[in-house]
Amino acid sequence: MKSDLLSLAKDLVSALEKGDQAVADGLLDELAGLRETQLFKEIGRLTRQLHDTMVSFSVDSAITAMTEHDIPDAKERLQYVIAMTEQAADQTLTAVENLLPISQQLNDQVALLAEKWSRFLDREMPLEEFKSMSSEISLHFKESQTGLGQVQAGLNDILMAQGFQDITGQIIRRVIDLVHELEESLVKLISIAGRKESGRHDASHHSHHELPGPVVPGVDDKEGDVATSQVDVDDLLSSLGF
């Protein structure tokens, strides 16, 4: 660089001494060109530095937004998952606890009646006992009907309780996405700090889900723009002429 300048300057001096204006002009242009290249290089370096700073700033603010808003939200979402799974387990266990004695009672009754019935078939039963067995059978029919009705209702409760898996699954998926985003941002921040950033920056914050998903009480219902119950949904639909 320096030697280029020096030789250009010497050539310029000799051209001027000879009075060769055309050559001198050409050399002056060349000299100015050299200065400009350097200037552009410097501008390029500054631009890159500015870009890196901007990128790290946007990654910074993405992380800040996540820690200020999304992480506490995620905590509440996970709390809701715990509450829902607990509720489902409770509902299932309650149903089972209610059903087992019913099934046990019917089972005992059947065993008793089966034994009597086989004695009757073997013609070993006195008339008086037959009469009492008949009324026991009638009673058993009645109790079976009530009992089996309760069993059916309980089984339905158990069935419905399993709905938690869908809702909690959707919520957990979202939290996994958030953790993934956080991880990506941190990796970006580290690579910028180490000046290894490739320059390509994708600030696709929250781009995975356009759909809001399950409403978590205390998190998603603050704005008042969600239906919090089936009654809400029905009211809205009937206001639309449904």
């Binding site: 809001p212 399950p214 969600v226 809205l236």
Partner: peptide
């Protein structure tokens, strides 16, 4: 569905 935003319900309607 678990989608309960009013605008979504309206969209479905």
């Amino acid at each position: 569905t678990a989608e309960a935003k009013r605008e979504q319900i309206i969209m479905a309607a």
